[in-house]
Design a binder for these strands. Structure first.
Lengths: 222, 222
DNA sequence: GCTTGTGTACTTGTAAGACAATTTCCGTAT
DNA sequence: ATACGGAAATTGTCTTACAAGTACACAAGC
């Protein structure tokens, strides 16, 4: 059983590495990733690289047209809004359900504590705990498929973040306090209030992100 | 541009054919689909068959453990409930939004008319228009990602249906009338009412389907 | 000078063959 | 009857090869 070793499969290992490189910003959007390039970089066969690329294309992290090199996806502002809309649908339901039972997920509390602790750190640092906070809410639904869907959206959200990684889109303290208010509503059993706080939280983030992506694409056009 | 031709890729053609065979019931759940079998059947190379199988595994239609033949997924009652729960989240939001604008999607009306027309036909016949009815509601949201997610769930729902294809789970007339009530709520702008009708509709279908899958698995154990 | 056509280079799509690793199943021995 | 060992079957990966399509550049014509 090589269950918890880093390498279960060569393809998966390549996928994992490429994901990390994309999220780290080493591979900026638009960077062409040819099958032969990837194969040479990792010293694997081309079919292996091909499979890894196809996996990432399915995840939405890469984009590829027929007979063209795969490129790191450049998400438009419309994409960002679409992602956040879909997110909001799922998270809203999660929050309502949590409020109806009054159960506050421990993982969510911990993630927000981490955000609070990183108050003075670089804004890029809070991406990870922020994603974990929201994931914790969804995973509390205990639905395999809902979690799987949300995981895929999370990847695209992270991709968005890397596009605007230099920008301070939102104040860290504001994020933490909004999360805190959300947890309070859940604890108090206020489903309506929780849903509203969440909707505002996501709506604001979506708007900021979309505006920033728009300004970036315009800047690139010049 | 070979955009709207049937064959864009050999792999996709194999995938399409396998999907059809699975949904038609020709490939019953548990049927082993080895890479060499598929390759021989379609007279394609093994890597091509492999790619097609991986595609279907990603869709949830096939299941595969490492170094084992892929098998047509046998969905448990728990899976069915999970799928319906996830469905319900998305459709509820779609219905609420449609009610807030009072817009009834034309495609949904047409699909339900088709169901009504098939009142006396075989219950298996209404699967297609039923799926189309619900899809139309979601597509009215006009969100690429939400539609994509829902499409994947639809596939699994259809897979469930093929598992219990002989059973008359619900009365065709009842389905049509519930759909009708749902559309009336939307037209009247009654978001709350529409959400409730939908929730009941899905909840009942989910329960029936889950019960039937349970009885099937027990029958198989004997 | 601009547009159009062609040709070449690069990339992906598909195929065939081969070997390693792992699982499963069956036969044998205790 | 159970446990162990080995053979068969299957998948995972790599190598090689050719076909097909796209993109870019260069040249010819208007």
């Amino acid at each position: 059983m090589a269950a918890r070793l880093g390498v279960v499969s060569v393809v998966q290992a390549v996928v994992k590495s490429l994901r990390a490189r994309i999220f780290s910003g080493e591979l900026s959007p638009g960077t062409p990733l040819g099958e032969v390039d990837v194969a040479a970089h990792y010293e694997v066969a081309r079919p292996t690289a091909k499979a890894a690329l196809e996996n990432l294309v399915a995840s939405g992290l890469l984009t590829r047209n027929a007979h063209q090199s795969a490129k790191v996806t450049l998400l438009s502002s419309a994409d960002a809004r679409d992602i956040y809309r879909t997110r909001a649908i799922i998270e809203a339901e999660a929050v309502r359900l949590l409020a109806s039972t009054g159960q506050v997920p421990e993982a969510a509390r911990e993630a927000n504590a981490e955000i609070t602790a990183l108050r003075d750190a670089s804004p890029i640092q809070i991406v990870n705990p922020d994603v974990r906070f929201h994931s914790a809410l969804v995973q509390a639904l205990d639905s395999t498929r809902t979690s799987a869907i949300y995981g895929q959206l999370s990847d695209e959200i992270r991709l968005c973040m890397t596009h605007v990684q230099d920008a301070t889109l939102l104040n860290t303290a504001d994020i933490a306090s909004e999360h805190e208010r959300l947890l309070e509503c859940i604890a108090a059993g206020d489903a309506q209030g929780a849903a509203e706080v969440l909707a505002q939280h996501l709506s604001r983030a979506s708007t900021r992100l979309a505006e920033h992506l728009d300004s970036l694409s315009q800047g690139r056009r010049r």
